[in-house]
Simulated assay, not measured.
Amino acid sequence: MPRLVRFYIRHVLIGFGLSAAFVAMLLYFNVANLWHLVTHSPDGLLAVGLLVMFNGIVFSGAQFGIAVMRLAEDERPPRGGVRQFDAIPVPVEDRRC
C-alpha cells in the first residue's frame, strides 16, 4: 500500500477515535440531557451511531488537514542572517487645493 494511502487511513482512524471519545464524553457528562434521550428512545442507538459518524467525518477531516499542514514545517533555522534596512526619508509635496 502506498505511503500516502497509509498516511490518510491512519489519520482518518485517529479522527474517528477522537469522535468516539467525544460522543462518549457527551453521553457521560449528560450534555443537554443526551444520555436520557438516548436510553429512553427506541432510536437511541441510531442517534449515537449518527453522532459518531458525522463527528467522525468532521474530526477526521480536521485531523488529516492538520497532519498535511504539519508536513510542510521546516525544522532548519533560517540561513543568511537577519537583513536590516535603514529607512530613508523621502520628501513629498502636498499638492492638495
Rank of each mutant, 00 (worst) to 15 (best):
L71D: 02
I14V: 09
L45C: 03
R70H: 12
V48N: 01
L37F: 06
L13D: 03
D74R: 01
F16M: 00
G80A: 00
I9W: 04
Q84V: 07
M1Y: 10
D94P: 09
V90P: 04
M69A: 08
A20L: 07
N33V: 10
E73R: 10
G56P: 05
V5G: 13
V82S: 06
A47G: 08
W35A: 13
G61A: 03
L71V: 12
W35D: 07
W35G: 10
C97Y: 12
N30M: 02
G81D: 00
P89V: 06
L34S: 04
D74L: 12
M69D: 08
S60N: 04
S60T: 00
L45Y: 04
G17Y: 04
G81H: 07
M69Y: 12
Y8F: 14
V38N: 00
G44M: 00
H40S: 10
G80Y: 10
R79K: 08
T39C: 09
M53S: 07
G80M: 01
R79H: 10
G17L: 11
F29P: 02
L27T: 05
R76P: 03
F16E: 05
I14G: 08
H11K: 10
R95I: 14
P89D: 07
Y8T: 09
F7P: 09
P91S: 04
S19F: 10
L34N: 07
V90T: 12
F22T: 09
C97H: 12
V31A: 02
I14H: 13
A32S: 07
L37Q: 13
D74W: 01
A20H: 04
M53I: 09
A20V: 11
Q84C: 01
L18T: 01
D94Q: 14
A87D: 10
S60A: 01
G80C: 06
